[in-house]
Design a protein around this nucleic acid. Structure first.
Lengths: 208, 208
DNA sequence: GATCCCATGTAACGTGTTACATGATTTT
DNA sequence: AAAATCATGTAACACGTTACATGGGATC
């Protein structure tokens, strides 16, 4: 009885006093596969480090440039930009398209660039869960003779073949020569990796 | 002019009448890579379809069985089980370990089994963003001579080699013979896929 | 009796998605 | 003039993680 009341009181006062951000420590889990801790800000820093751009430009970059690796909608990006500017990692200049269409061109501050470099330099000791819905469905199919398997595989072949075609196209357009590769080596590496990944995925699908 | 007023009126009445839960349609985006729409419930249905078990058992399954494909903590699982029971997809029996340690053994209802089958049968037309932090960091490295690259790659080699070893071990223990494969064919396929994926990842890493 | 595992929950918060909301510019 | 694209925001809600909280059972 008494302890219940005590616990509730403690909770009340804790809530009362801890209005501001709590620093949470990471928690070591070895080979664990864990979730996301605001990686979005780092990706925005990285994109802005490549060139100054607007929130709208960043939104399109998530759609087209790095869509295979990260997703973000403008409703997430605009508030994040405000927060990062408040934190002193980025600043913006106002610009105008045409007569009066206002836009904000963001760029890194020194602090932002340091934060980006620190992020890149720190370890990445975690694996990420795949979250491939087709794979999950397959997991729950017991029998090799299940009549749904052929159509499911065919659908995925179509999907991943389209993705592979898209990646090949991007490789050809973004990296037409060695100079382009030298100018964005990491980008080249991950495109290569993505192509190999899709190729292997398709080979596996086509084998079954 | 008129059309503007009309649109605002429409919006007003829409907001006025739609106080309760809005049914949200999926929104076709072609080859888009979109987010999660409560897949957890289906995974729980699938796991319970394999055998009746407790929330604790399910939590462990997420840690060990399907950790490569989906993650969930017990703090997410227990509320989901309650919700699914309210929705009539699962039921539970109370059981006791030892003298008085209560536990709840959940199993599918007919409705739950139907929902699971419907989910497996519906299309999976979406690709999933990878969200691999190492890949993101690499994307932002411009130069092939960047001094951080070797250590980054070495770290990932260690990580993915450990994962591959783990997958090989699971393959050997879960599928020691053809009978085991026949009893859980989908599980076999995705383990095979995961091993190939890690093998390819490692080959790519070791090449650079 | 200490430690680890079994077992179930809630609270707080951060992240991500969809929908709402508005207006300018360019293209067809 | 209609449609698509540029451009920026907020609101509501769903999802996911970490932390808080409690207690029984088994093993050393």
């Amino acid at each position: 009885m008494v302890s219940e009341v005590k616990a509730q009181l403690e909770l009340f006062f804790k809530n009362w006093f801890n209005k501001d951000r709590k620093p949470r420590q990471t928690g070591q889990k070895g080979l664990s596969i864990i979730g996301q801790r605001n990686r979005l800000q780092y990706i925005i820093l990285g994109l802005l480090n490549q060139r100054s751009q607007t929130g709208y430009d960043l939104t399109k970059a998530f759609d087209h440039e790095i869509g295979e690796f990260w997703q973000a909608q403008h409703s997430q990006i605009y508030p994040m930009l405000k927060r990062m500017e408040t934190d002193g990692e980025i600043t913006h200049q106002d610009a105008v398209t045409g007569e009066k269409l206002a836009k904000k061109v963001y760029q890194l501050t020194h602090k932002g660039r340091q934060k980006l470099e620190a992020w890149i330099s720190e370890p990445s000791p975690e694996l990420t869960a795949t979250k491939d819905e087709f794979i999950l469905k397959l997991y729950f199919i017991r029998s090799a003779d299940d009549p749904r398997i052929p159509a499911m595989i065919h659908e995925q072949v179509t999907l991943h073949q389209a993705q592979l075609d898209h990646l090949h196209l991007r490789m050809a357009t973004v990296f037409p020569d060695q100079a382009a590769i030298d100018a964005a080596y990491g980008h080249y590496l991950i495109l290569e990796h993505a192509i190999e990944r899709e190729t292997q995925y398709l080979a596996w699908l086509n084998r079954h």
